[in-house]
Design a protein around this nucleic acid. Structure first.
Length: 104
DNA sequence: AAAGTGACGCATT
DNA sequence: TAATGCGCCACTT
């Protein structure tokens, strides 16, 4: 396994429990560098592994990503709603209630 | 081999 | 309060 940021991002995102969401910045912070938020997004951008619930990762405002899977943000929002994640708007998640702060 | 680009976030003007 | 710039890593041209 490489020590690349990408690998760590994937491993971390895999640990996000259902019904919860996390942000790029939060993940970057857990990796040890809050400024890696951009890299985190890039990592998930190229991700195709179903093991990595990239739909549970949103930006700092709680807004869904712009270029999700084939169905776009609609699919992402649906997945989150099914898991019980509350929405404050059409494309906005209630981070105050469902933000995953990291592995115990 | 070097420069540009990209699912972001925070500080500053 | 809103808008712009900078920082970080990996990948593409």
């Amino acid at each position: 396994m490489k020590d690349s940021i990408f690998q760590m991002v994937y491993e971390l995102v895999k640990q996000i429990p259902p019904g919860k969401v996390s942000t790029y910045g939060q993940i970057a912070f857990l990796l040890g560098n809050p400024r890696l938020s951009r890299v985190v997004g890039y990592a998930l951008h190229g991700n195709r592994d179903p093991e990595v619930p990239c739909h549970r990762v949103v930006n700092r405002k709680g807004e869904l990503a712009s270029a999700f899977l084939v169905n776009g943000v609609q699919e992402q929002r649906l997945l989150l709603e099914i898991e019980g994640v509350p929405f404050t708007g059409e494309g906005t998640v209630d981070l105050s209630s469902c933000l995953w702060e990291g592995p115990a």
